[in-house]
Amino acid sequence: MNGLETTRKETKLKKKGSVPQANVPSGPLLKRKMAFEGTPLSGKDFEQGKVLFTTYKPKLAYAWDTGRAIGRYLQGLKEGRLLGVRCRHCDRTVIPPRAFCERCFRPIEEWVQLQDRGVINTFSISYVRWDAVRLEKPTLPAVIDIEGTSPRVGILHLLGEVDPKQIKVGMKVKAVWKAASERIGAITDIQYFKPE
């Protein structure tokens, strides 16, 4: 017995009336398990042609307008600078930049050039690629609180030139930039952050 079966038997209509007579327990339905068993398939069922299927690879391509705030952020990266913005109303300096403050909903008016260094807020040692492929050498994602911002304001990036075992929350790190000629105005213009 499991919970699902019991409910089935115990459920009864209190009254007949506007709500219809149940189609409850009658004939073969009574024996049907409440949890629909379904038809689980294995990978082999597909390979061996036991099951029909079709595939489709959509071409879902985009070009997202960066707008003022992110456009300028990317331009800063190209120039080797990390830009943030300051909300005067909330006295809060944040990165990535935005055109308005999500807390007080006022436009943000002030740009701030930040140091390209910070502190590891949290990190991971990841052996799995985005598409679930296993990695021999781990990637080291981290949230890095950027110096000059308000407390616990950071960005997502990667760590490098570090033994994974040595990484600690609170560790000071510094951006390693691509050469100026290779920078295109992208978050990847910073290769990674390394311990200072």
Partner: peptide, 26 residues
Amino acid sequence: ASPEVSYREMIYEAAVKAYSDAGLAP
């Protein structure tokens, strides 16, 4: 097309106008 604004900036403008029209804050 609206190449000079991100979706966030575009929506923000509409929202600010609506708040102003209603005389309300978020």
